[in-house]
Design a protein around this nucleic acid. Structure first.
Lengths: 144, 144
DNA sequence: ATACTATTTGGAGTCAACTTAAGGTCAAGC
DNA sequence: GCTTGACCTTAAGTTGACTCCAAATAGTAT
């Protein structure tokens, strides 16, 4: 229900030549739950390719840019390092010859995630065990 | 294989009164794959209760101490913050009245881990998808 | 034209979790 | 009795990933 185009200051600036669907950094920030500072940081660090700019130099996120933002968010959320994501983007930008290198990178990161998942399972098992024990304690202390 | 008691300087110091099974910081470090510095840091930070000392002030890890070390390693490995673990240990040391508080802490951390696992699943799905795509590219580029 | 707000850049600051350094103690071997 | 090596403590330094700040510019509303 917020859609675009009715707030003062910036509203209606979008879609100025009928192409529709470009977003300001503020909009992207709100839609993805990433602060504007972090979006700029991701770009500066090279975690996403340079975002399209308007004539005046403002970021003007297009679908392709959004896809990169979403990928970056997903991978960082899972714990990939900024460095790994930067490496992937750099390879991607170097063209098709880097497909094998990218593949290797992707596989290594996949292994790291599988490992991380194993560690989480182990910790979950321990927490569940402890939770049960503490529940029993809490229940037991009320009796007699 | 290595067991304890044959190296110079410290060897044979263990088990000096027939109790057996106490470990130096070096041994713990090797067995758990945690550096000595990190072991000291964990203790100083309160992630594990104060470790038993020998008469001369050296750490002398006993089974109970080891259990704490292992718990700390497991939880940190899964991503719990040092702060969360410290909080748990502090509550634990305050005795049985803190059982409800501990339970709540454990449940909150469990939720965080479940969430983290979801994020990893999502990233894994994406990586797998990309890996397949890159494999196809690599395979296709060889034909004709 | 002027006020106001969103955005830009570059750079400095913060925070968590270690990690390293400096200086000192202690038991064993020569 | 002196050197050696593992250990101790306290404090400072490092790293990764943001997060905040200042000064300048851009677009819109009055």
């Amino acid at each position: 229900m917020k859609s675009a185009g009715t707030s003062p200051g910036w509203g209606g600036r979008n879609d100025r030549d009928g192409k529709g669907c470009r977003l300001t950094i503020k909009e992207v920030s709100e839609q993805y739950g990433i602060t504007q500072d972090t979006l700029r940081y991701y770009e500066r660090a090279g975690m996403i390719p340079r975002v399209t700019r308007s004539a005046s130099g403002h970021r003007d996120y297009q679908p392709e840019d959004l896809a990169w933002v979403e990928l970056a968010k997903c991978l960082r959320g899972a714990g990939l390092t900024v460095e790994a994501i930067v490496d992937y983007v750099r390879l991607y930008q170097q063209g098709a010859e880097t497909v094998p290198a990218r593949l290797e990178l992707l596989r290594r990161q996949r292994e790291a995630l599988l490992d991380q998942r194993r560690q989480i399972e182990a910790a979950l098992a321990r927490l569940d065990h402890k939770i049960r024990w503490h529940q029993d304690q809490a229940a037991g202390s009320g009796g007699t």
